[in-house]
Design a protein around this nucleic acid. Sequence first.
DNA 1: TTTAGTGCAAAAATTTTGCACATAG
DNA 2: CTATGTGCAAAATTTTTGCACTAAA
Lengths: 147, 147
Amino acid sequence: MNTDFSTILRSLNLKITPKRIAILDILMNESSYLSPEEIWTRMKKQFRSVGLPTIYRNLEELSERNIISKVTHPNRQLYYYFCANRSHHHHFVCLSCRNVEDINFCALDELRREVKRKHNGKVISHILQVNGYCRNCLNKEGKDNEI
Amino acid sequence: MNTDFSTILRSLNLKITPKRIAILDILMNESSYLSPEEIWTRMKKQFRSVGLPTIYRNLEELSERNIISKVTHPNRQLYYYFCANRSHHHHFVCLSCRNVEDINFCALDELRREVKRKHNGKVISHILQVNGYCRNCLNKEGKDNEI
DNA sequence: TTTAGTGCAAAAATTTTGCACATAG
DNA sequence: CTATGTGCAAAATTTTTGCACTAAA
């Protein structure tokens, strides 16, 4: 498993350090958004000493290079997410278990036309976050816990 | 003008105070997202003394009652926006002047179908923010300043 | 009056920076 | 070796709280 991360890091001209690999590993195995602090908590179980700034610095670097994604939740928490899917897509976030699935649906073309036609503006980027309940949580009947 | 705000506040069982009215007034006349601090700056021009906590408290109350909208920008700043349009819609934010226009386009139905069909999940809410350049800024050629 | 609103100071929470030391290549 | 990465302490930024005082209804 490490080999993959090493390859990724090497290709980005980032040094291969145990902590970087651990961060990627944690994010990859969560398949959910994690806050820097949550990642830190997990890191502290693996390393005798880790600083929170290291987490922030690495997350920022990795997201700048598009290896992980960064999301600002409506609750104001910053979250990071490992996203192997490099093409344009959106996220379906489960309000109950906070798991994330990629949605390949995107209405960018229609959006672009609408904005051009009605507003005479030009769309550069868009962020779509879809909240709901995933298959598992629907089955477990955990669906009315949150908004 | 004040009368409108008074009516709104009365209907929400909020007391009509000069500061509340001023906040609504500022937001209404900006037709753009403002951060609590930006609102505070404007408030200080009108009142001999205002505390930032008052701004936060009022913004929170007003947005809980859906009189104004709250947005967390990707840059991590919290913004508030007066939104007279009470029906479901999205925002087109100009990356240059930060002005906001309502977009009536929404792909909720397709989104819902996609999530049901491919993920077996249920969509509860979604947030779509469209960034781009508005008519004015396109004309002024200010379009390549930002992402 | 009585309840809700406000200012101020102070705390909390989150993120960033500076710098000396450690480690990967 | 040399450039990067890291820990620690400390700062900066943003938001929230407690409490005494004020103002609206």
